[in-house]
């Protein structure tokens, strides 16, 4: 019998269950795109049939990290840039738990970039939502890895000399097996994409455009947007890596020309998740490791049986 009765519990789930009684009202600025992520995530959870007790949300540091305070579940608000390594070990330790990681563009594409690349490469079965507002918000408006070239801020007074990072293209090269972009102003698409990302068996990366009305005033509200799956102008095959790469490149370029493209960019349903790969080579137990510590009948090997080779 599982020591974790919340996992795969069959019952009706209401989206209100994900609103914490302690901090029901977020303190993000009025008009902040982060509200859109919270709303979409709450809407997606009942759709995928997961309860607060069987969900672990890991966040980084920044306005996005506050998601943990406003979303009822098990939570781990980690340190700047490190939500992914915490999250992926949690998934390996107990694959039955739904693991979602979230953070901002500075958190995920800047300070945590190394973890982003490697978590995507390894294709851990989890969802990663990046709140991309093209700015450092909580520290009051510095240029971020996704800020457009020429972006002026207190720390880049003459405007940034750097080309912005291309998050979708990076994700594809690194190995993510589900890649989408959505925007806070597009709540229904956002909820659908997050639900798909959660249900995807592998590393699902959602670049979520979240406008910052306080520190990125000259930036767009990400409207009007185009859903590339709904538009007659675009027709790429989301299972085709090459076509996806071209579509991503165009999307990333157009963002700074004022055209907002969103939707699904790449889906690879065939690639095994990291957990599956690791089990296939015998380096991960079939039963969730976390269960064993609650199982009174579990066998615990001892190293006395290894000593022979040292004699």
């Amino acid at each position: 019998m599982s020591a974790f009765s919340a996992i795969d519990e069959e019952r009706e789930i209401d989206r209100d269950e994900f609103t914490p009684g302690i901090e029901p009202q977020p303190t993000w600025c009025p008009g902040c795109g982060d509200f859109g992520v919270l709303k979409a995530l709450k809407q997606a959870m009942p759709e995928v049939g997961r309860t607060p007790d069987e969900t672990l949300l890991c966040t980084g540091i920044g306005c996005s990290g506050k998601l943990n305070s406003y979303f009822e579940s098990y939570g781990f608000h980690t340190i700047h840039g490190r939500s992914l390594p915490v999250a992926r070990a949690a998934k390996l330790a107990n694959p039955g738990v739904e693991v979602i990681a979230a953070g901002g563009d500075g958190d995920g594409y800047g300070i945590g970039g190394n973890h982003f690349i490697h978590t995507a490469r390894e294709n851990h079965d989890m969802t990663y939502i990046v709140f991309n507002n093209e700015i450092f918000g909580l520290t009051k408006g510095q240029t971020s890895p996704t800020s457009p070239k020429g972006h002026k801020s207190k720390t880049q007074p003459s405007g940034s000399a750097k080309e912005p990072l291309r998050p979708l293209s990076l994700s594809l090269s690194a190995g993510a097996s589900y890649i989408a972009r959505t925007a806070a102003v597009n709540p229904n698409q956002a909820a659908d994409i997050i639900a798909e990302a959660i249900e995807h068996d592998g590393f699902a990366h959602v670049d979520f455009l979240t406008q910052c009305p306080t520190w990125n005033k000259d930036a767009k509200q990400y409207v009007p947007y185009t859903d590339i799956q709904q538009s007659d102008d675009y027709d790429h095959d989301i299972n085709d890596r090459r076509e996806a790469a071209e579509m991503m490149y165009e999307t990333e370029t157009k963002l700074h020309e004022g055209e907002i493209l969103t939707g699904r960019y790449y889906v690879d349903d065939d690639r095994p998740s990291y957990g599956q790969e690791k089990r296939a080579i015998g380096e991960m137990p079939e039963e969730p490791l976390a269960e064993r510590y609650f199982d009174e009948d579990a066998d615990w090997d001892r190293t006395y049986d290894l000593i022979d080779k040292h004699t």
Partner: peptide, 20 residues
């Protein structure tokens, strides 16, 4: 893993789930 920051963070993630 990719670096020692990740190494320590992973061990924390697993421990958070109840694994020694």
């Amino acid at each position: 893993v990719e670096d020692e920051i990740a190494a320590a963070a992973l061990a924390l993630g697993a421990s958070h789930m109840g694994v020694k």
